[in-house]
Nucleic acid binder design. Structure first.
Lengths: 359, 359
DNA sequence: ACCTCTACCTAGAGCGCGCTAGTAGATCGC
DNA sequence: GCGATCTACTAGCGCGCTCTAGGTAGAGGT
């Protein structure tokens, strides 16, 4: 490691550095008004003249004043902060987080994000949020003990996003997994596929539902004999492993439904790398429609879970509860939507036929 | 949208729900001691007997008490909170964030994360952090006006990670971009490449340095005539675009150095999709070694920027400043390390030769 | 008996803000 | 000319905690 020094414009030269941050009282003193007036101005409440407002803002800018949210929270009965727990590596969570911000803002709430990672468990993330005075919690595809979450729900409003959470008095918002899966299977069968494998999501959110839906959809199409579920989870690695399993066998299936987009990505790349033509030889479908799937280089057929809609509902639900709504726990289920892109097509030998029919 | 109701175990049935959260005073009252004593116990300070400690914790657990960090912050002179601003979609940032948490925790700091996204600009993210009373700021590859960051640095300790930030009195921690790029070019030239294109990172962190280093490394190898820089930024899309540009030309280069891993990913996929053999026809190298590059399905040759080291230094630097160290601004530069994986190899026509020599 | 020392505990003043209750001064109605 | 009604502002309590400056009780020394 190398170190360099660059122009030392630190320290005492600059007057305000190092002393404590300015407070409302400092601003008030500078303008020559009371603290309360400054408070009014910053909360945008009536009761101050336009001229005074301008002078207050001016002084605040000069001092570099910024309201202290800790003090605000303390003084207000409510903190106006929503906590979001997400997995840092999950791109769909990234989409959701992005969507949550504007909605919360519109409703006057600040968002605090706490991340879960292999090295940092969910409980810790949630505890951090709680001590930062979140009034409500939005848990993205949580993997913790249901009992823990239920317990949380007894203390503060909690909404679980992206997974079912029935019978525990906690609100949830998710898509109709079964319907999404059914749409994909219908799409594939319509294209002429019969040999359709499903790579499972293990104990990840939505997996159980997706697996069951796969099985029943296959049966509905008279393909009970073709049902095959490979174990996996929602990571790229599991897709790669599934691909390796399939490639080691004498005959590839003509289509694979992955547990989610990340898994599909792993599948896709391992297959392409083995010179398998996608979708010529094998069609691949994902689930989530995370921003990765949109990218032209992936161009994945997948099931869209509308993150904007999910985020909107999640935030609204928590805020309603906060508003004192003493309703029983709700489960809000969104319609998923199949998004057909470039990774699915007719199975080998059916290409011309389909081209003729499809128009 | 469908709605369901599930077991309504909400509301008045459960006593504690809806009433305000318990405070230290509640715990104290329950144990029959003073508030101050409870405070001692929770801060793990000497001055309470073992027995009392146990009783306090017991009571706290029964009440579901949790210290209110807003009040703690307010009462303490320092908040013990570090703010991190990251881009939600950047996987390398995810790696860094993950690495920052344990280091901060070890040093007794809590971490607040604020995300930047296309819809939410960096200034807003930083403002949020500041309001939440962060004592120090860690900015991951910031893209804001340098003047703004410099200004910030005058108020509170700020460390910029992943990009140079010279002469503005702000600490920075990054890798020696030039050296990393030189290593890649050396590696490629050694393999026999001459036609090596660089896809630029635009105004993204590190880009200028990488571009310059590419140019000078090429010149050093007597390949001044082969220098070619395509515009781009640090997204997958820009990689795809660069690939399209290259594919539209009569002759492909034999190697491409992308601005970062995301860009490399776009390149890779667009090329493979066009049936270009990687690395048989074209070698591709990235920059960052984000967790995506590790994945077996990507297996990208790239330049490793050690996120653990970067995180460690970043946190330590901020904390040192917080400790009152009144040093001039430091620039800490880490050594990058070339990681050769599967996307680079000898150029077309040199494969056998290299295989013979390489052992 | 008195003093000291240690171990354990308490009172109470803030931290920066929001908010309720109130005041000074201008304008208006009659 | 006096109360009524604004507008523009202020005083001061309390949010839940930390922390300084104590207080008390019992053990031990002289």
């Amino acid at each position: 490691m190398r170190e360099q020094q660059s122009g030392g414009d630190r320290g005492a030269a600059d007057g305000r550095r190092r002393d404590k941050r300015p407070t409302m009282a400092d601003v008030a003193a500078r303008v020559g008004v009371s603290r309360a007036l400054v408070s009014l101005v910053f909360r945008n409440e009536p009761g101050a003249s336009q001229e005074t407002r301008a002078r207050v803002f001016q002084a605040a800018a000069e001092l570099g004043y910024r309201p202290d949210s800790a003090a605000q929270m303390l003084a207000r009965s409510h903190s106006k902060v929503l906590g979001v727990a997400a997995t840092v590596r999950n791109p769909f969570h990234a989409d959701l987080v992005e969507a949550i911000h504007p909605v919360a803002e519109r409703l006057g709430y600040d968002v605090l994000l706490s991340v879960t990672a292999p090295t940092r468990d969910e409980v810790k993330a949630v505890e951090a949020l709680l001590s930062h005075r979140c009034e409500g919690l939005i848990l993205l595809g949580p993997n913790t003990e249901p009992e823990y979450i239920a317990d949380l729900g007894r203390r503060i409003p909690v909404v679980v996003v992206g997974r079912r959470f029935p019978g525990r008095g906690v609100d949830s918002v998710h898509t109709a997994e079964a319907k999404g899966v059914r749409q994909v299977i219908d799409h594939l069968v319509e294209l002429g596929h019969r040999s359709i494998v499903h790579v499972d999501g293990g104990r990840q959110p939505g997996s159980v539902e997706r697996r069951r839906a796969y099985q029943s959809a296959m049966r509905r199409h008279g393909l009970a004999g073709e049902i095959r579920v490979l174990p996996g989870d929602h990571t790229e690695e599991s897709g790669v492993q599934a691909a390796e399993t399939l490639l080691a066998e004498p005959r590839l299936p003509t289509a694979v439904l992955a547990g989610n987009d990340r898994c599909a990505l792993g599948l896709l790349d391992a297959l392409r790398r083995a010179k398998v033509d996608i979708p010529g030889q094998v069609s691949v479908a994902g689930y989530d429609d995370s921003h990765i799937a949109h990218l032209s280089y992936v161009d994945l057929t997948t099931v869209r879970q509308d993150p904007d809609r999910l985020a909107e509902l999640a935030v609204r639900t928590v805020v309603e509860r906060l508003g004192g709504a003493d309703l029983p726990a709700r489960e809000q289920v969104l319609e998923p939507k199949l998004v057909v892109r470039g990774t699915t097509g007719p199975p080998p030998g059916r290409a011309e036929e389909a081209a003729g029919a499809g128009g």
